[in-house]
């Protein structure tokens, strides 16, 4: 079973979703971090899928 304290033994590797400055400050101190180009869901996936089906005539 995984434990929170296991995290303390690993190298911290971060995914940042949101404010770019949080990524920049981690870059600054040499922590590995990747920024997600996050966008609010456009009307929900299901809606887009439904629309897509309609377009393709299915």
């Amino acid at each position: 079973m995984r434990k929170i304290s296991d995290l303390f033994k690993q190298e911290l590797k971060v995914i940042n979703i949101g404010l770019l400055s949080f990524k920049e400050s981690l870059d600054d101190v040499g922590v590995k971090v990747i920024q997600v180009d996050w966008r609010p869901p456009a009307g929900g996936d299901q809606e887009v899928m439904d629309a897509l089906k309609k377009l393709l005539g299915k």
């Binding site: 590797k13 971060v14 995914i15 979703i17 949101g18 404010l19 990747i34 997600v36």
Partner: peptide, 16 residues
């Protein structure tokens, strides 16, 4: 998508 680049990530910071 991020996990494909960095499969061993262990922390996510969320500010949306």
């Amino acid at each position: 998508g991020a996990l494909e680049y960095m499969p061993d990530a262990n922390m996510v910071i969320i500010s949306v």
